[in-house]
């Protein structure tokens, strides 16, 4: 089922290589906007007592690049996520439900900072929410 969905998504992505002007990708500010959002979120995470321990021993540049790629792809931008699966990249990190929500709050703050509308924020969160099961408690 997941493989089928994934290939369906790929076909869609190839079919829409040039995003429409009002696409979520554009509303997030394209490549520049998404990069700013991810960097702002990671800076906030590194300073957040609740979750900073999860970012101590990671290659933060790689995390940034892969997140930008992933958000770009999820929002309909011209990218293909090339990182590990969500299960793989979070195994051993023991991300709790609270940690996950804390990062959601920081993502929201970063999107607010970039002036992303509430509706566009909700749309991106709707793409990310189903991934929680593959991220937490691993």
């Amino acid at each position: 089922m997941r493989a089928w969905l994934f290939s369906g998504l790929l076909v869609l992505l190839v079919g829409c290589a040039t995003p429409a002007p009002d696409s979520l990708y554009q509303q997030l500010g394209g490549q520049t906007g998404i990069t700013r959002i991810v960097e702002d979120m990671l800076l906030r995470a590194a300073a957040d007592a609740r979750i900073k321990q999860h970012f101590v021993e990671v290659d933060i540049v790689r995390v940034r690049d892969k997140l930008v790629e992933q958000l770009c792809e999820l929002s309909g931008g011209p990218c293909t996520y090339s990182g590990d699966s969500m299960e793989e990249s979070h195994t051993g990190l023991h991300i709790s439900r609270s940690d996950f929500n804390a990062l959601v709050e920081l993502l929201q703050a970063a999107m607010d900072q970039q002036g992303v509308s509430v509706r566009a924020q909700n749309q991106l969160l709707a793409h990310l929410a189903p991934m929680r099961g593959e991220i937490i408690e691993r």
Binding site: S117, R119, N122, L125, A129
Partner: peptide
């Protein structure tokens, strides 16, 4: 439901 009411939750 995220974004279900014309983009609003």
């Amino acid at each position: 439901w995220l974004g279900a009411a014309f983009g609003y939750n």
